[in-house]
Amino acid sequence: MTNEARIALYVFDTGPLITLAAADSLDYLLYPNVTVVIPDAVFYEATREAGKLGAQPIIDWVKANHAKVELAVTNTYLNFEAARQTRPEARVANLGEQAAVEVIEEPARLQENEVAVLLCEETAILKRIQVNQPDKIVQLSTMDFLKLLEQERRIQSADAVFDRALAAGRNPSRAEKFSQHDPEIRDAVRETLELFKKRDTGLDR
């Protein structure tokens, strides 16, 4: 299962995205040169609210790397969007988590020689996943992933990435800047999700 395996890196919750965005290191996700899969609701949760650290960089990075990043469309998120049409204040507990589980359990995923590396901070989510071959899934925390890149000498220091994320969190002007532009961010999130939906359904051709 090594050389012939088809690997994808699934970003399973918002933690890795926001930490790497805050540290200005989202490109690290591309270093393994495998498809990066982000469930739509995880993308939404990482970018939806005012003051969200990393929101705009995540949107920009996903758009800039649309050939290497898949925003996986889920019924969980589509149903949530539909509910918000009638009730804008609608919220769903664990929306991103539900969408992530839906994505990995899709029958078209993990076929034959496909293997998933799941990047997430919440290990509890793994207990909810039901797939036929659990050995096809390897779960890593953000720090595990960074340590791996460090071992590969692709980055100098995993700890320095965490330190940069915290340094960004200490800069209140950055967070305030995001909160002022929240409507723009909401529009950008919607546009990005629409772009990927069209691409997946072939409507952009």
Binding site: T14, I18, A22, A46, K52, A165, L166, G169, R170, A175
Partner: peptide, 16 residues
């Protein structure tokens, strides 16, 4: 959100 967690930690000089 997780971004707020980072901000709260940073404000207290706590590591991730």
């Amino acid at each position: 959100g997780y971004g707020d967690v980072i901000i709260e930690l940073a404000q207290r000089n706590l590591p991730l």
